[in-house]
Design a protein around this nucleic acid. Structure first.
Lengths: 231, 231
DNA sequence: CCCTCGCAAACATCTGATGAAATGCCAGCA
DNA sequence: TGCTGGCATTTCATCAGATGTTTGCGAGGG
């Protein structure tokens, strides 16, 4: 086990033991390096790694603090790494996304407030303008697509589910997804399916919301190029 | 953006651009530091972070290599970070786990080979001996529990789903889960439910497998202490 | 009471040096 | 020829020291 790993493990252990709690400030580099019996260089490597993992964050001139340790924060670095995946893995990722978002749609249908339903409605209404354009403003359409799915995830009442969906269907991943979709008229079809999902949400019908979301995302999977399609 | 972040982004970009492919060796520290216009110290911090994220791995005296970038490898660091979660977040995590494993059970029922079914059977047969003990060997029971769920995940045909389940239901998380379960006779009930899941798998009945798995994990969630139970 | 300036603390970065591990080469031997 | 053992080189691991940058805070003046 390298020195750096010992640093990571040491800090992790301090948090688990309760010696460090969210929001707490870590000892200064010199002291902590002394405590963990490593040089400042090795200490910094470990702290930096935890910083990228979202466990701590440092501010120059101030100090290093334990973050809130929210699921959203701890799961977000996954997105950085997910788009390193080969295009061939996209179907597998999307299948998992479908499972997660289907569950989210069902939960949201039961839990969304009237205000949240209105928010989703407002997002969909923006699409009308975009689709009128010729050619369609693709980037804006993607932004709206993301926003619609995000508002659903935000009202599941499950922050872990929400954070996971954000990782699997966030901006970078979604951009890649749309890059490989070439089907004609896909924007219109997507919008129609979003409308169907919205109706299920507005009707507070979890079963319908699940089916509509699953159908929507299965349709996307059908449009994904299979591995055999590649040269 | 700090120097280290530039290193992380630079290497990530090299992989995305295809300048680095899985298995490739990175330039030596001095050269890479020179290319990215940072000192060796900063470079090492960035490389170390990517190493902990599972993107590269370094061997002293040899060099630094891009990993296979398998989903399993890239998702595994999540487990390191998941057990930093407060016990209060456990229900949310477990709900997601239930969704993932329910899907896995359905997929596995369709795809498991006869050999895989036999493997699952063998795992369950071990339980009989363990339950005969008094007191029950808890650690061994947990190991078998993990092995049973893992063999199901391994036969979904979806490596992303498998890796995600491993993160959400791996050894460390599971150990914590069992630590907060106090229900009397829970081992026996768990075993009975595992048997029911196995019968559905052996019958190649996806719907039954889904229901049995969901029921099994919902039962676990019922046994989780609610937030209000805490002092 | 409020604002500004300067000092001290803390992280950010760089440089040079030394240690440890893996690899490759090659001489020596069977 | 083929193998084996050790030596030199390469490369990462770690340390120590020095300097730059940013932040926070308090003293002092308006």
């Amino acid at each position: 086990m390298s020195r750096t790993d010992e640093v990571v493990d040491g800090i992790r252990r301090m948090i688990l033991d309760g010696r460090l709690r969210p929001g707490d400030r870590l000892p200064v580099e010199k002291d902590l390096a002394d405590t963990l019996q490593v040089s400042r260089g090795s200490l910094r490597e470990g702290v930096r790694a935890l910083s990228i993992l979202g466990v701590v964050h440092t501010r120059q001139g101030d100090g290093t603090y334990v973050t809130s340790l929210d699921p959203a924060r701890l799961l977000s670095p996954m997105a950085l790494v997910l788009d390193l995946q080969d295009d061939g893995a996209m179907p597998a990722f999307h299948s998992v996304r479908r499972v997660l978002e289907t569950e989210a749609a069902g939960l949201a249908a039961s839990r969304m407030s009237d205000a949240a339903v209105a928010e989703a409605r407002a997002i969909l209404d923006q699409v009308t303008d975009v689709l009128r354009g010729s050619p369609v403003d693709h980037d804006t359409f993607i932004e709206i697509d993301i926003a619609f799915h995000r508002v659903i995830a935000a009202h599941t009442g499950n922050p872990v589910l929400e954070a996971l969906i954000e990782s699997f269907a966030g901006r970078t991943v979604r951009a890649r997804l749309w890059r490989v979709l070439h089907t004609e008229g896909i924007e219109e079809r997507t919008h129609d399916e979003h409308e169907a999902i919205w109706r299920a949400l507005a009707a507070r019908d979890p079963e319908a919301a699940r089916i509509r979301m699953a159908s929507h995302l299965l349709g996307v999977e059908d449009s994904l190029p299979r591995r055999n399609d590649l040269p």
